[in-house]
């Protein structure tokens, strides 16, 4: 071998050292590798999309609340959508009233946020099932933005938030995953937009578990739990997280109640979702 050329063994060793360096390199240095993910996912999409379609057709997301008859299910979805709109409108009215009060006090408020909604297919998941990410066939090309866009299913059931948006694909982290973090929600104990607040987080069993606010009364299994969390985008507020499955006193603090919430669908088995993407209004 001529002097100065790299032997295959040495090249392998150098590659290994480079990978070791990338493993521990600061985010600023190793950040460029995220750009390699998009072309890889694009190349794998034809096979993963077909496999995902087959697997989700054979094992679709089961709904615990929708009727099995397609016509009745469609009507139920419409009813649920209108109920969400009504509740969201009530919440907006309350917010607007508070904004008017703030404006009257001479304080600035944030502009309203409009959103666009469109369907996206689940074309695959992460090769590491622990993370539970769902890959969708819509990305920045359709206006999907990280953090601000959310995915819903069956009209008003929240699937999760977009945590990565590539040019053609995006990844959604379902709310039932522990990594999605703590969520503030409202248990709908009555007909209006008022209810009992709770603080829940995904568990390994596909449910959300957490604590009810102090002095909570009237919470019963079967009641709807909706998102009301300022950390989440406006487009996700008052969407359904699931239904109360269990309410019980905490083991270590019997005077406080803990709550288990089960989503109406298996969120990691959905085939199509509706993406809600915020559209900022042009200033007049």
């Amino acid at each position: 071998m001529p002097k100065g050329t790299l032997s295959p063994h040495r090249l392998l060793l150098l590659t290994t050292l480079l990978l070791l360096a990338l493993t521990f390199a600061p985010a600023g240095v190793s950040g460029f590798v995220a750009g390699l993910r998009e072309p890889v996912m694009f190349v794998l999409a034809p096979i993963s999309n077909a496999a995902s379609f087959v697997s989700r057709s054979f094992r679709p997301a089961r709904s615990a609340t929708l009727p099995t008859d397609p016509d009745s299910a469609s009507l139920a979805i419409q009813r649920n959508e209108f109920k969400t709109l009504w509740l969201d409108a009530e919440r907006r009215i309350m917010e607007l009233e508070s904004q008017i009060r703030e404006l009257q006090q001479g304080r600035a408020t944030a502009p309203d946020i409009e959103f666009a909604a469109f369907h996206a297919r689940v074309v695959g998941a992460s090769s590491d099932t622990v993370s539970g990410l769902l890959t969708l066939d819509a990305g920045r090309n359709r206006g999907v933005t990280q953090g601000d866009s959310v995915a819903v299913v069956s009209g008003d059931n929240l699937v999760g938030r977009v945590v990565e948006s590539g040019r053609l694909t995006s990844s959604v982290l379902p709310i039932t995953r522990r990594d999605a973090g703590w969520i503030q929600a409202l248990v709908m104990t009555g007909e209006g937009a008022s209810g009992v607040r709770c603080h829940i987080r995904g568990t390994r069993d596909g449910v959300l578990h957490g604590d009810l606010s102090e002095g909570a009364v009237g919470v019963e299994p079967g009641q709807t739990v909706r998102l009301q969390d300022p950390e989440w985008p406006e487009t996700a507020q008052m969407l359904v997280l699931g239904r109360v499955e269990r309410v019980a006193p905490k083991e270590n603090a019997p005077l406080r109640l803990e709550i288990t919430v089960r989503p109406d669908l298996q969120l990691d088995r959905v085939q199509r979702v509706v993406l809600r993407v915020p559209v900022l209004e042009d200033s007049p």
Binding site: T15, L36, V40, S127, Q146, G147, L173, D179
Partner: peptide, 30 residues
């Protein structure tokens, strides 16, 4: 190494905040 890099690129991690993903090339390749 090729399979490992492929696994790294197809399995991003979710950040502690739950708001973004982190793509690390190396752990699965090694």
């Amino acid at each position: 190494l090729i399979i490992g890099v492929g696994l790294d690129l197809t399995a991003p991690l979710v950040s502690a905040s739950g708001l973004e993903t982190i793509t690390l090339v190396g752990p699965k390749a090694l």
